[in-house]
Computed example of a mutant assay.
Amino acid sequence: MYEKTFPNKRFKHTLEFLNKHVSNSETILDLGVENPFSKIMKEDGYTVKNTSGEDLDLDQSVFSKEQQDVVTAFEIFEHLLNPFTILSEIKSDKLFISIPMRLWFSPAYRSKTDMWDRHYHEFEDWQLDWLLEKTGWKIIDRQKWTNPVKKIGLRPLLRYFTNRYYIIYAEKIKQ
């Protein structure tokens, strides 16, 4: 299944991490429109509903309309201007976030052709951890992994040793 889907290493790690903490009986609200990974989650037996493309920085009403067991935000928070508000509005008890980590040797990603495809935030791990803590989440599990590329040069070499992706499973702290 995901072995043939680009980018397979990231999808493989993400699905294994999700399977470790979520049962197929739990429902998932996946932030962002349907995408290759939400299709993989469905193929793996999860019940997944995606957001419909609304600008989550301006409209968080999906969190009061949709009462799912789990919220997933895979490769979404780096595109948002205000992740604090979104994290504060989530009503579900379980949250999964993955992000590309900030790399000291590479500038933040910005597409030259798509004005929406850019990273406003490339977090260091401690920054995302602190953001979750400030918005009432307790981190239960986390992982990091590298993302080597098949190119020649100093930056491609550094990608073999430098973690690029960070994934977190957190639970809402009961008030």
Rank of each mutant, 00 (worst) to 15 (best):
E122G: 06
F17K: 04
Q175I: 11
P148G: 08
R10E: 06
D30Y: 08
F37C: 02
F37P: 01
M115Y: 10
I28A: 12
I152P: 00
E122D: 06
K39H: 12
L58G: 00
Y2W: 13
F17W: 06
T5H: 03
T51V: 11
K144E: 01
K174C: 01
L81M: 09
V70F: 01
L80S: 06
Q67A: 06
K65P: 00
T72F: 03
Q127W: 00
V71K: 03
I86A: 04
Y160Q: 09
W145Y: 14
E3V: 15
H79S: 07
F123G: 02
T162P: 01
P7D: 15
Q68L: 02
T27K: 15
W137G: 08
V48H: 08
P100G: 05
S64E: 14
F17Y: 06
H13G: 02
L29T: 05
E43P: 00
L157V: 02
I97P: 09
F77H: 09
W116I: 07
P156L: 13
D114M: 06
W116L: 12
K12T: 15
S88P: 10
D114R: 08
L80I: 09
A108Q: 11
G53D: 08
F123K: 04
L81K: 12
T135M: 11
I40L: 14
F37K: 04
S106D: 06
F77I: 13
G45M: 09
A73H: 06
K39P: 02
T14Y: 12
W104F: 14
F37Q: 01
Y120F: 15
I76G: 02
K20I: 10
F123Y: 14
D125F: 04
T146E: 14
A108T: 11
D117Q: 08
P148F: 15
Q60N: 10
D30A: 15
K12Y: 13
K9A: 11
E66N: 09
K150N: 11
F96H: 09
P36S: 04
T51A: 04
F63Y: 14
W104A: 11
R164H: 09
K49F: 01
E54C: 04
L131R: 10
L87K: 03
D125L: 04
Y46H: 12
L95I: 05
I139K: 15
N50P: 02
L95Y: 02
V149T: 14
M115D: 09
Y46I: 03
W126I: 10
P7N: 15
K112F: 03
W130N: 07
I86C: 04
